[in-house]
Nucleic acid binder design. Structure first.
Length: 875
RNA sequence: GGAAGUUUAGCUCAGCUGGGAGAGCAUCUGCCCUACAAGCAGAGGGUCAUAGGUUCGAACCCUAUAACUUCCACCA
């Protein structure tokens, strides 16, 4: 099949992906003679479609897994999707309201879940299609959803294990309550934002002495109905007489005690704190210490309950206004101070969360955190970039117990049953039918579901079959690298680490590669509200998946944010087009010829140079991919492919290809094919589609590039010296080009080159290349330039070049140019001598460096002499 | 209140363990030379945020400062 003049991804991307699937290349088999390499995909939420962040995440993983697969590992990339309990439920609630005009309560649990499963089918399918469009080489045979049977089993196992070890408990404590989603949230699910508010100073009068009062300062006047004490610091001289006395809570006229507690800060506010145990975590603790009653004053939806008396039914914020007005009316309001403080918001619906005392399920964190910290500390798990391990430690060391129960319907139901007959609580892996205590058959399962992250935490092993002892689990666990964004380090990564250690007794992964966020052109986060998100599919439609992949990993360093710009996609597209055309050139020239193995042809110095460059490139790409420096690896390939291979080597082969010498032609083609084939293999993990397409057109190749061997660096050819020498030839070509441009000589005008050089053999051997690339008609070796008329000249490392240009030579300009050249060289000499005259440099710098510096000085001194001579001759 | 990151060419960013500043885009000049104008050749452009310090030598290490960004934190 003919290759088109310009690269057009639409013609082959979908077809190639189908072929990969049909051949089963993505499927990882357990093979005893291979080393496993495993990545589990961070499962995208089924809430919607993939965004650029996902696109980058999956490109990075795909690049790594393709690299490892080609290197001969049993490479498994396990895909999946996440049920995303709260996030999905919020979406489906909206959807049901819009389509059926019903609330979820009106619909009922069973019907609601039916709708949600239908939603899941639709969106999980869409997400997989998008992953395929990106070229993801994940093992679809192992596709997992977090609510699959096997995951549910894992969740049960984990819950029951932790429960039996008393690491899961039910407790009545302050949790974060979202009045909009009507569920508890974990600490990690709350986002804090500073809000301008006020500090209300309220006067509470002493019970028996209307002349004595305390002024409390609060940001939450509406919770006063739940006040069950006022606290002052035990050391505060101002309030010693009040400790143990009672004050009257205004409006409700309830008597509450004044307690002494360290929690009250003498420096802050008035030094008196109203204590509302049901609605503030600190107050809750104070309440426990002083055995205070816990009075809840709010309903689930954030409205006030009957405790608020006349304010019952009001929304919490309306109530605040009303209470303040009432207090003012009654003369209890002393003053209002402006005050900014952090208010927590639900990470899903963004409404202000309410700290409320509530009975929930918790995971006891301290015993789990300890070994999880050690795993990273002892380097059993390596976090990249390293600085993020500090963030991890900081969180793990201060983590509080994890609230895992959610008052939702969509998710893993908590495996706990209550016996209404005897009050027993039963926690079992299998659904119990009878109460083991009293034999009663009226067991009722806990209504709540689990935090979605509880199942995510088990992902690296639940996907492989745990708690069953499956061969997969045995072979592929622990996984090798986890690739994800630093924004879910607490939600997910930290929890996988302690869960893996707890349940598997083994770390879940050896490396964690964190990437940053994909931002828009202006550096803003992409978000729905800003409307600045860009759909990867739209980009793929316009430019192809390879170009998108290029744009997402070019220039990225681990942990750093990156910006999406269309210019980067274009740069990628242009690069790929370059590869495409270079390949087309090679293929066209190789057509109908016998391709010789590179070992059997005589290599020119240009051949040796490019082979040496290729070897260096293989080394660097491999090294950087192993370090997960994907961006660096790609940039090395970019330079090699474009500069070395296209701009130099291909041009260098043209004299041979267009010449008559069949042996030379065979040689050039052999090297072209060899280098191109290797380069394509190196490029394949980054640009899978186009490399596969070209590979199929290459002579002497068969099968798919994705299962070909990744090039090995073994310094088989070496040629370091020959390659270095060849740089001299390149320098001559560049010098001639530069001089011609400077004097305004058309590139197409052929010039004669007079050369003084000790490297005649090298130059002679590359004569054809020099003539073609420099645009010259002949090379004449001379001993001295003395008799040359009207020349411009240039001193290179291995030669002095003189070009007679007749009328084009501007005497003044040329003189100025040569003088400028002298200046430059003098500068170089001065720099070298500056160092060499420094005794400390001679004494302390490495010998090699001193030698290099000497050599440089001598070289430039020699050059200076030559340029000065040219200047003299010229005059 | 803690902690982290960033600051390099007009723009977006690389620069690994300290040893002569790089790329892409943009700009200027000239080119359709039988792979490629999504291209080729040549060129201009940087006190590497600021001030100190360590060192023979600093974009890189240390200290302070400034600006921007982010994360964590129950001060009512």
């Amino acid at each position: 099949m003919e290759m088109q003049k310009t690269y057009n991804p639409k013609e082959f991307e979908d077809r190639i992906y189908r072929e990969w699937c049909d051949h089963g290349y993505f499927h990882a088999e357990i093979s005893p003679d291979k080393v496993p390499f495993t990545i589990v995909m961070p499962p995208p939420n089924i809430t919607g479609q993939l965004h650029m962040g996902h696109a980058m995440d999956c490109t990075l993983q795909d690049t790594i897994i393709r690299f490892k697969r080609m290197q001969g590992y049993a490479a498994l990339w396990l895909p999946g999707t996440d049920h995303a309990a709260i996030a999905t439920e919020v979406k489906v609630v909206d959807y049901v309201r819009e389509t059926e005009g019903l609330t979820k309560e009106q619909l009922g649990r069973e019907e609601f879940l039916k709708r949600t499963w239908a939603w899941k089918e639709k969106y999980a399918g869409r997400i997989c299609d998008q992953l395929k469009k990106m070229g993801s080489s994940c093992d679809w045979d192992r596709l997992t959803f977090t609510m699959d049977e096997k995951c549910s089993k894992a969740v049960r196992e984990a819950f029951v294990n932790l429960y039996k070890k008393k690491l899961i408990y039910q407790g009545n404590r302050i949790i974060n309550w979202c009045p909009c989603c009507k569920t508890a949230l974990s600490d990690a699910e709350v986002e804090y934002a500073d809000e301008a508010s006020a500090f209300w100073h309220l006067r509470y009068y002493a019970k028996d002495d209307p002349s004595r009062s305390l002024v409390v300062a609060t940001t939450r006047p509406e919770t006063m109905f739940g006040d069950t004490a006022v606290a002052v610091n035990p050391a505060d001289p101002r309030y010693q007489d009040m400790i143990g006395k009672k004050v009257i809570l205004p409006i409700v006229e309830r008597e509450i005690p004044v307690v002494a507690d360290e929690h009250a800060d003498m420096e802050f506010g008035t030094g008196c704190v109203k204590i509302t145990p049901a609605h503030d975590p600190n107050d809750f603790e104070v309440g426990l210490r002083h055995h205070l009653p816990v009075v809840k004053v709010m309903n689930d939806d954030g409205t006030m309950n009957e405790e608020a008396g006349m304010f019952c039914g009001l929304d919490r914020y309306e109530c605040r206004k009303a209470v303040v007005a009432e207090l003012e009316k009654r003369g209890n309001l002393v003053k209002i101070e402006p005050h900014t403080h952090a208010v927590g918001h639900c990470y899903r619906c963004h409404s202000a969360v309410e700290p409320i005392a509530s009975k929930q399920w918790f995971v006891k964190m301290a015993p789990l955190a300890k070994p999880a910290i050690q795993a990273v500390m002892k380097n059993r798990i390596k976090i990249l970039p390293d600085r993020l391990s500090k963030v991890y430690y900081n969180w793990m060391e201060n983590v509080r117990d994890w609230c895992i129960s959610r008052q939702l319907w969509w998710g893993h139901r908590i495996p706990v049953w209550y016996c209404p007959d005897c009050g027993a609580t039963i926690c079992e892996k299998e659904d119990p039918t009878h109460c083991p205590a009293c034999g009663g058959a009226n067991l009722k399962q806990d209504e709540d579901v689990l935090d979605t992250w509880f199942s995510s935490a088990l992902w690296p092993f639940s996907t492989l079959g745990w708690p069953e002892k499956t061969p997969d689990l045995d072979y592929f666990y622990p996984t090798d690298v986890l690739v994800t964004g630093y924004d879910i380090i607490f939600f997910w990564v930290a929890r996988m680490i302690f869960s893996g250690i707890e349940h598997m007794k083994k770390i879940p992964f050896r490396d964690v590669l964190f990437h940053g966020i994909v931002r828009d052109e202006q550096g803003r986060k992409m978000s729905k509200s800003l409307g600045n998100g860009i759909d990867p599919l739209v980009v793929i439609d316009k430019y192809g998946a390879d170009s998108l992949r290029y744009s997402l990993i070019t220039g990225v360093a681990p942990g750093n944010d990156t910006r999406y710009t269309e210019a980067k996609v274009e740069a990628g597209r242009n690069f790929i087009n370059k590869i495409w055309n270079a390949s087309r050139f090679v293929i066209m020239n190789a057509e109908g010829r016998n391709i010789l193995p590179i070992e059997s042809v005589k290599l020119s110095s240009a051949d040796k140079w490019i082979v040496s460059k290729l070897e260096t490139c293989i080394k660097e790409v491999t090294l950087n991919l192993n370090k997960y420096e994907i961006g660096v690896a790609l940039s090395k390939l970019y330079d090699f492919m474009w500069d070395d291979f296209c701009d130099w080597y291909i041009e260098l082969t043209k004299p041979a290809l267009y010449g008559e010498d069949e042996a030379k032609k065979d040689g050039a083609i052999a090297v072209l094919c060899f280098v191109l084939e290797n380069a394509l293999k190196l490029l394949h993990p980054f640009l899978p589609f186009v490399t596969e397409e070209i590979y199929a057109h290459l002579p002497e190749t068969s099968g798919s590039i994705m299962v070909a061997d990744f090039p090995h660096y073994n310094a088989k050819f070496g040629y370091k010296k020959e390659a270095a020498a060849f740089e001299g030839v390149k320098e001559i070509i560049q010098a001639v080009r530069a001089v011609k441009t400077e004097v305004g000589c058309l590139p197409s005008k052929k010039v004669e080159l007079f050369i003084v050089s000790d490297a005649r053999r090298l130059i002679h051997a590359n004569e054809a290349s020099i003539l073609k690339l420099a645009g010259a008609s002949a090379i004449r070796f001379i001993e001295s330039s003395e008799n040359l008329p009207k020349v411009v000249s240039k001193v290179c490392d291995i030669a002095q070049i003189y070009i007679p240009l007749g009328e084009l030579v501007d005497f003044e300009k040329e003189k100025a140019r040569l003088e400028g050249e002298c200046e430059r060289i003098l500068g170089e000499i001065a720099r070298a001598e500056g160092k060499l005259n420094n005794q400390n440099f001679l004494l302390k710098a490495p010998k090699k460096l001193v030698e290099d510096e000497r050599a440089k000085r001598d070289k430039y001194a020699d050059m200076l002499e030559k340029v000065r001579k040219q200047l003299k001759d010229f005059e």
